[in-house]
Structures are given as C-alpha cells and as structure tokens.
Design a protein around this nucleic acid. Sequence first.
RNA 1: GUGGCGUUAGCUCAGGUGGUUAGAGCGUCGGGUUGUGGUCCCGAAGGCCGGGGGUUCGAGUCCCCUACGCCACCCCA
Length: 421
Amino acid sequence: MADIPRYMRDVIPPESERFAEVERIGASIVELAGYRRIITPMFENTDTFTRGVGESTDIVNKEMYTFDDRSGHSLTLRPEGTAPVVRSIVTNHLDQGGLPVKLYYSAPMFRYEKPQKGRYRQHHQIGIEAIGSEDPALDVEVLATGWNVLAACGVEATLLLNSMGHPGEDCRKRYQPALKEFLEGYREQLDADCKRRMDQNPLRVFDCKVPADQAILANAPLLEDFLCASCREHLGDVQRGLKELGIPYTMAPRLVRGFDYYTRTTFEYQSAALDAAQNAVGGGGRYDGLVESLGGPGLPGIGFGLGIERIRLAQEAAGVQLPSHEVTVLVVPVGAEEKDAATSLLWSLRAAGVRSDTTYSERSLKAQLKHANRIGARLVAIIGANERAAGTCTLRRMDSGEQTELSVSDAVARAAEEQAR
RNA sequence: GUGGCGUUAGCUCAGGUGGUUAGAGCGUCGGGUUGUGGUCCCGAAGGCCGGGGGUUCGAGUCCCCUACGCCACCCCA
C-alpha cells in the first residue's frame, strides 16, 4: 500500500473544508485592513532563516527541514512566515511602493520536530506583516487584526502583551547582565535545560515550566523595569490604543517568544479552550532590525502568525459550527431514458450556483436515494418517465420526505433557496 | 532527540492461563416484486492478526528486534 511520509497528514473532507473556511475568514479580515496577499516559495536559501530567525532559536538549532539540491545549494523548507516575506520585500524592492508595506500570507510551515496533538511537522499559518513604520498605532492595528480574525473564527482568546525593548545599551543590553547575574546566584538549583538556556539566551529561561525554577524566576528582575524611555512610551501608546479599541489584554512580562528578531512589542494569543501545552493559537511581534539583517534598508516591521490547526482545535473544543459543503441537490434519473434530461437539469442547477451532482449509474431509484442520503444531499431531483414527458422534475426533501413536482426553473429556484439557508 | 502506551476487517474494538475453519458493532454492496433513502429484517463481500526472528508438537496470544501511530517532555502555531 502507498503510505504517506512519516508524520505527515492528509486533510480530507469535511475537515479540509473547515480548514479552508478558516483561511477564507482570515483572508477577508486582513484584506479589510489593507493587507495584500503575497505568495513566496515553500523553501528559501537556508541562510535566510539562520540570519533571520536567529542562531540561538530552537527552530534554527533543531527544527529546520534543510537539504541540498542537486547543485549543492542548501535550502530549507519554510519554518515560519516572516523571514521569507521580509526577504521578498528586499528582493523585489517593495519598500519603494509607499510605506508601510502591508502583506499577508496563508501557507504551510515545516518544522522537523516530533508531532503530538496540535503540533505537526507541516502546519499552516495565516499571517500579516507591516513593514516601514514604527508608529505604535500600527502595532495596535496588527494586534487588533489578529484579534478580529480569531473572533471571526469563534475563538475566544487571551491576548498576552510584552515589550522586548530594543537591543541597545540603554535598554535590553542593560537588562541581560542583570538577569544573568541574578540567575548565576541560582545556577546549581536550576535544571539542566534552564542552565543551557541561561548560557545561550538568558531570556529564554522564562519559558521554563519546572515549578521549582518558576519559583526562583518569580523574583528575577524583569525587562519592563529596564526599558528605555522611548520603548516604554511606545508600549504605553500600544496599551492605550488597545484600550481605545476595547480589546482586552494581559501584560505578560515573562512572555518570551521563539525568534531572536523580536524587538519592542511581542504578543501571543492563547485559547482558554485548549490545554496549556498547545494553547497558543498565534503570536507575533515587532522586528525592527530584521529587514536590515536580511540585507535591506533599515526599516522596522511588525506582524503576527496564526496557526490554522490550532484555531481548528480551539473551534472544536468550543463547539463552533462551520458550514459544510455537501452537494445540495442530487439529480436522479429513474431509467436510462431520463439521463439526458437529468444532465440538462444538473447543469441548469450548477449555472444557478447550486452545488449539485448526479449518480453516473443506472442503479435503481432506491439505490440512488440511498446514495443521496449517504452523501448528505438535502434535496433530490427525480426525473422518471412522467417528469420527462411533462418537462418537470420531482423535488424531494431528504429530511422530511415531502416532495413536489416542479418545472425545471422552479426546481432550480427552490434549490438555490435551500442552499442559501 | 527522550519517555509512556499502542498496532487484529474500510472504521471502532473483542479475542482468561498458547490449542481446530480469527469474531462483534458500525460501514459497504445486494435482497425484502412496478418509481422512493435514512428505521426494521435477511444475505454477501471484506483479514500475509504491522514486519522479521525466536521458544514450542502448535503463536493473534510468550520473548527479542524493527517499522509505524498516538500522547507527553523540550519548544512552539
């Protein structure tokens, strides 16, 4: 038997339709805010991610799908959406078309990690990126847009907000030694993982979930107390903007996200409907140095990514119903003589926008009705000798069993009505 | 990468202490007289018991290896 590659999954109906519905909702919301779709390659040169995402991140360290092509170029399947978009802006000089540049994507991401519930080697994100302005109002727009996408999907989220400051001597660079000094005092009490983090990237110790370590960290100095005046002001403006829009948020001074490029505003959307292990349905932040580090002009930027699979999980947990795409009408010719009339009706239905199908068989009426039931058709249009002679069809409702003989045009109109309900 | 649990029909699963032709429910297909499904009744098809090796007169069952899956840790969407 032909097998799917290890750890990969097919998304099949009806889940595939619900998945696509989330994509549609997301696209329509971000387009309302002026974001335009960008489609970048599924893989990039490896250094786009090593330089963009950062050497100290787990994604670059152990989760990249990296391979050499036939001419020896090192390529990497996209593990996240921001670096490729920024790279494309640089490649195509999109910063020349008026700032900020506002783009969105809906695309698969690949991470070489062991799958579990809500975590897959290939997952999908819809995300936006706004490049070329450091106006806190733009931060607010991005946060609010992500919030709106989740709300439109029926996902109740908690918005966690933090500021990473900027990497200057008067800001984050001043904090790191303070944090490190604090941690050194507890070095032997921290578990192995945390010790590693404290040497590689001290901020990441806040990710630690070991209770004993958390107790120590509760007294650690916080970045928010080291922010420079301008980062502090920026954060204050973002908070005011969110309040203005009535979007609730929670300050999370220990929130550290998985990419090195974040500066100032960072945030995460968490779903209360999901277990804590995978409750992040999305996240993002500002990346004021990323464009330049990928060889472009010194432009600031901010964006978010939302996980479609996580949104689906949250929807399921919350009992959110999404429309399904079963055929509305199954056209059923009673005998071979009615097949032409059936085909004609079928295409009239389709021309009117009614999802419709026929059985492509000469099975008994009984068997065809059974098929209609099986595929979830709401209506059946039966054409037998009588209807053929009269130029009509018998429209049967599958839920109630009631049926009426109608002209073709009336049947099409009735079916269109039914589909719209 | 590490750990726990699992793998028998299309799906969900039974198959004490090894013992004849491996079962159920659901699903699929067909039938229960003319052109009426979803309920009910009857019938049929469908299984290298994940793969390999070992113990044994005999292995779905016990042992080892391996592949794959799920869940969890790390981290994230």
